[in-house]
Simulated assay, not measured.
Amino acid sequence: MNFYSRFTSNTHIGDNCHFNGMIVRGKGKVIIGNNFHSGKNILFINSYHQYDNANAIPYDTEKMIDKEIIIESNVWLGDRVLVLGGVTIGEGAIIQAGAVVVSDIPKYAIAGGNPATTFKYRCIKGYNKLLAEDKFC
């Protein structure tokens, strides 16, 4: 870790991961695969207030909804990315700085925006060559 990061006991981190300032908020499970890299000020939020059939307005004061976040191997997140619960970011994906990830991102995708959408894909041939040669930073 290069900058302060805070994880929950439900966070499972793979090998060769580099964090430049990440906070995981909530009780949902977080799985981060191998060779993960992040920019600064990353936020994962995976618990939400229950609002349907709540005991108060605007939300229930007792019940929370916990959702899993899965980050597959070889993912890179740019600065200030927000990832919400219930999301999987596929292997080799790159998420542009400032993106808000609210739905799944496919393998090898390059995505950005609010909400994050895929606008390009990595060169899979080059990616697989580097993978076969074990070239990780």
Rank of each mutant, 00 (worst) to 15 (best):
Y59C: 12
W76K: 05
N53C: 04
Y51R: 09
K63I: 15
I45M: 09
T61N: 01
Q50M: 14
M64S: 10
F44L: 14
I45W: 03
Y48M: 15
D60H: 10
L77Y: 01
E72T: 04
I57G: 01
H49S: 03
Q50I: 04
N55R: 00
M64R: 11
K67T: 03
Y48N: 10
S73K: 14
T61M: 00
Y51A: 08
S73P: 02
L77H: 06
E68R: 10
I65K: 06
I57L: 11
K40D: 00
F44P: 00
N53Q: 03
L43E: 07
K67E: 15
I69V: 15
I57F: 10
I42S: 06
D52L: 14
I69G: 02
T61H: 08
E72H: 12
Y59K: 06
K40L: 00
N46G: 00
I69A: 10
L43K: 12
Q50P: 01
N53F: 05
D66A: 15
I45R: 05
S47E: 15
M64H: 08
S73W: 11
F44R: 08
L43S: 01
E72I: 09
M64L: 14
Y59V: 01
D60L: 00
N74E: 13
L43I: 15
S47I: 09
I69S: 07
S73I: 10
Y48W: 09
N55H: 11
N46Y: 00
S73R: 08
N55V: 03
G39T: 06
D66G: 05
Q50V: 10
Y59S: 12
I71N: 05
I42A: 01
Y48D: 13
G78D: 11
I42T: 04
E62G: 00
E68T: 15
T61Y: 05
I42C: 04
N74D: 15
W76T: 15
H49D: 11
V75T: 04
I57C: 01
D60G: 00
N55G: 02
D52N: 13
I70N: 14
I42Y: 03
D60A: 04
G78R: 11
N74T: 08
D66N: 15
E72N: 11
V75C: 03
W76M: 08
K40H: 08
W76V: 06
I65R: 01
I57A: 10
K67I: 08
I65T: 09
Y48G: 02
K67F: 06
E68I: 09
W76P: 00
D60V: 09
N46P: 02
N46K: 00
D52S: 08
S47G: 10
Y48E: 13
H49R: 07
D66T: 13
G39F: 03
A56E: 09
S73Q: 14
M64A: 09
M64N: 05
E68Y: 06
W76L: 05
E62F: 04
I45N: 04
D66M: 09
Y51L: 05
I65H: 05
Y51Q: 06
K63N: 15
D66Y: 13
S73V: 07
K40T: 11
Y48P: 01
L77C: 07
N55S: 03
N41V: 05
